[in-house]
Amino acid sequence: MEILFWVLGATVLILVVKYGLLKRQVRSLACQVQDSLCRNSEKMLDISLIDKDVERLATLLNQHRARQRQAVVTAQRHEVSLKESVANLSHDLRTPLTVILGHIQLLCSSELSEEQRRRVDLILSRTEKMKDLVNTFYELSLLDTEQIIPRKEKVNLSNMVMNLLAENAPILERRGIFPEVCLPDCSVFLLSDCGMVERVLQNLFVNAVRYSSGNIKISVCQTKKDQGIFCIENPVRDISKLDIDRLFERFYTGDSSTHEEGTGLGLAVVKILVEKLGGEIMAKIHEERLSIKVFFNE
């Protein structure tokens, strides 16, 4: 009887020790996985374990992570290849489109009947839209592949806004839009890339004019930390159809009934450009007006 007691005691002790070691190994695996997730590390799990079943589990987890890593690498390669293909295709399409536009413009200057002129004008407008779309795709593909690096220089944001309004005066007049412009007494200067800032302002202006149901408001100011702020507001035709959280997504146009006017790429390009310039962009809706604000950092 005493021997049986000692055997049972020893068995229980062995089971307790084994259970404690097993818990320790499982806890170690859990800590490794958590640490890998927090640090986004690609380090494999330690499989120098005592329990064979736990060691097999760690091996299977490592194999799964290796396959995931390979899948990510493959997806990234495909994405880069797709972006390069889009860039090359867009670049190749620009030349023939330019030639087509040239010949159409020559047709416009020739003697045409009323019906012929109507058809040529329609072809011209569609071809110009196609060229704009191809140029936007080309620009977007370059931005995605990070081939554009900002060249910082002193930029007069106030003058840039005034030039933008002057250049687009015919569009404003045709649409019956009277912009309200608020500029500070002193010019607002930035240390930024002139071309990229111009592209940001132009895209925001075109978007506001295209989807506005009334007059737009443009304001410029500068913070004490020399941070330039550009803000453009416009009333929205149907506020219920606008998803503010998707505003900067590619191909999002807000209202599917107006997709003929825009491609949904302009604001996506703006967001990428602003981020490349080290700035921030935000949008909000207040009293049925859409407000987009850009913070240009030094």
Score class of each variant (00 low, 15 high):
residue 260 E to R: 13
residue 295 F to Y: 15
residue 116 Q to Y: 02
residue 27 R to E: 13
residue 2 E to H: 13
residue 178 F to H: 03
residue 42 E to H: 13
residue 82 L to G: 04
residue 263 T to Y: 12
residue 112 L to N: 04
residue 193 D to N: 09
residue 77 R to D: 07
residue 91 H to N: 07
residue 288 E to F: 10
residue 73 V to Q: 11
residue 235 P to Y: 01
residue 233 E to V: 02
residue 236 V to G: 03
residue 79 E to W: 10
residue 219 S to M: 04
residue 170 P to Y: 01
residue 184 P to D: 05
residue 86 V to Y: 09
residue 231 C to K: 10
residue 286 H to P: 01
residue 106 L to Q: 13
residue 159 N to C: 13
residue 282 M to L: 12
residue 144 D to P: 08
residue 36 S to M: 14
residue 154 K to V: 12
residue 8 L to N: 06
residue 120 V to R: 03
residue 271 K to Q: 08
residue 260 E to P: 09
residue 8 L to E: 07
residue 133 L to V: 05
residue 123 I to W: 11
residue 100 I to W: 01
residue 232 I to E: 00
residue 125 S to R: 14
residue 219 S to L: 02
residue 137 F to M: 07
residue 152 K to S: 08
residue 156 N to T: 08
residue 24 R to K: 12
residue 67 R to A: 15
residue 153 E to H: 10
residue 217 K to Y: 09
residue 52 K to N: 10
residue 12 V to D: 13
residue 88 N to E: 12
residue 288 E to A: 07
residue 46 D to E: 15
residue 25 Q to D: 08
residue 154 K to N: 09
residue 164 L to N: 06
residue 69 R to H: 11
residue 218 I to Q: 10
residue 248 F to Y: 10
residue 156 N to K: 03
residue 149 I to S: 10
residue 129 K to L: 10
residue 58 A to Q: 14
residue 69 R to S: 11
residue 250 R to Q: 14
residue 282 M to A: 12
residue 85 S to C: 11
residue 31 C to A: 15
residue 41 S to F: 04
residue 113 S to Y: 05
residue 158 S to N: 04
residue 22 L to I: 00
